[in-house]
Design a protein around this nucleic acid. Sequence first.
DNA 1: AGTACCACCTGACGGC
DNA 2: TGCCGTCAGGTGGTAC
Length: 260
Amino acid sequence: MPELPDVEVFRRYLNTTSLHARIEKVETRSLNILYGIQPWELKRAMEGHFIESTRRHGKYLFAGLDSGRWIVLHFGMTGYLKYFKEMEKEPPYSRLLITFFNHYHLAYVCQRQLGKVGIVKDALTFVTEKRLGPDALEINFQTFKDILEKRRGSIKSTLMNQRIIAGIGNIYSDEILFQSGIYPLTKADQLSEEMLKMLFLQINYVLKTAIKGRARHFPDSYLIHYRYKNGKCPHCGKIVEQIKVSGRTAYYCSICQIKS
DNA sequence: AGTACCACCTGACGGC
DNA sequence: TGCCGTCAGGTGGTAC
């Protein structure tokens, strides 16, 4: 689930639920999700403080504390945030529980524990150290073009490479390529100027459309509804193809997505 | 530079 | 029914 649109939805959720609420208590329920930090350090960094702003870069969410330090959250494959009041409403697989002085709770939920939570001194430094590429919604066409023209790998794996462009994963790379009419194994440096323009446009459009639908509702014309065996292309009705691209399952339509 | 494979985790699903 | 292999939208490391 958590690619750029999902994380952006989480960010807005954090804004509307938890901003400026003073933190009373922080409980780490699973050590696996901590990012180079001990539970007591997390407690000390957060308790008595509050979140005053949020940021996102690619699939990473940052929550800026009044102390100047930042909480960094990554959601792995199964992570999300849940705000609630009654403890009976705490969801299963809650790995980190924040309790505010107003008696509400915010849970970082992550069933498979592939996500991570940590404290960093600032978001930009973290992004630099991780060597993440520009955020997929911030990049400009010239940069995009310059990067892709030097890439010899497949366009799908290039789009999913966080060090090239941050925020796009398996689901949205499939969707972007489908909406652009590009075959996923096309080499990035083989794309025509016209294709690059279309791709750039669709990255922006698909991600923004997903955010608008809160990463849950999508137009009928989207491939996302048909990413399963024997799923039919929403454009032409042909059964979608399923292939492996750098270890991930890619779906595409062999009629609508041209090999160039 | 690019890819293949493994690891980290847990749960769902299909085949036998 | 039960066991087992495989797979799932994440990243990171190694080897080639």
